[in-house]
């Protein structure tokens, strides 16, 4: 990662202009050749800095109206099976293991998205039964106060 990569990241983490030669337009803005830009993008993709270039949705405007954060108390010996089952379900994004503390016994988190509330309830029922875990908590989204992509400039300055 050098200064040029940083400039690229700042640019592409915003809203890029959509046209046929999308990378050429971007390269021009950055004063690079298209080949150079693509080479650097591929590099950063391989390093895992760039996950992908894709549309980010306003999910509340789509038919997915229900969102819930679920938190599970999963014993160590069941973690792998639980993760395996969760990863298979398309409605689950953002699976994290987190530290527990005295006020929070749940160590595994998964975000669930559904077109109907029932869809979410069914997934929870399925997982609970499959893994034989009854200690979990469900936190439906009531209101989104803020959702934004990280401001790269703020972090690398």
């Amino acid at each position: 990662m050098d200064k040029i990569d940083e400039r690229i990241l700042i640019e592409i983490s915003q809203n890029i202009e959509i046209c046929m030669d999308v990378y050429e337009a971007l390269a021009k803005k950055l004063n690079l050749s298209e080949d150079e830009l693509l080479k650097r993008l591929k590099n950063m993709k391989n390093q895992g800095v760039i996950k992908r270039i894709a549309p980010v949705l306003y999910h509340q405007n789509t038919e997915y109206k229900y969102h819930a954060m679920t938190a599970w108390k999963i014993p160590k010996n069941k973690i792998d099976t639980m993760l395996y089952e969760m990863q298979k379900i398309e409605n689950i994004s953002h699976i994290y293991e987190r530290n527990i503390n005295k006020d929070w016994p749940y160590n595994l988190f998964g975000m669930l998205h559904g077109k109907e509330k029932e869809e979410i309830q069914n997934i929870i029922k399925f997982l609970s039964k499959k893994i034989q875990v009854t200690e979990y908590t469900v936190l439906y989204t009531k209101k989104q106060w803020k959702k934004t992509s990280p401001n790269i400039e703020y972090f690398i300055r």
Partner: peptide, 26 residues
Amino acid sequence: IRAIHSLKKKGYIRRFGAILDVNQLG
């Protein structure tokens, strides 16, 4: 390309760009 513009206009797409793993940037 037309579909992307239309989906942006209709409010389905918030942003079209890179999705980064910022943890990789420290």
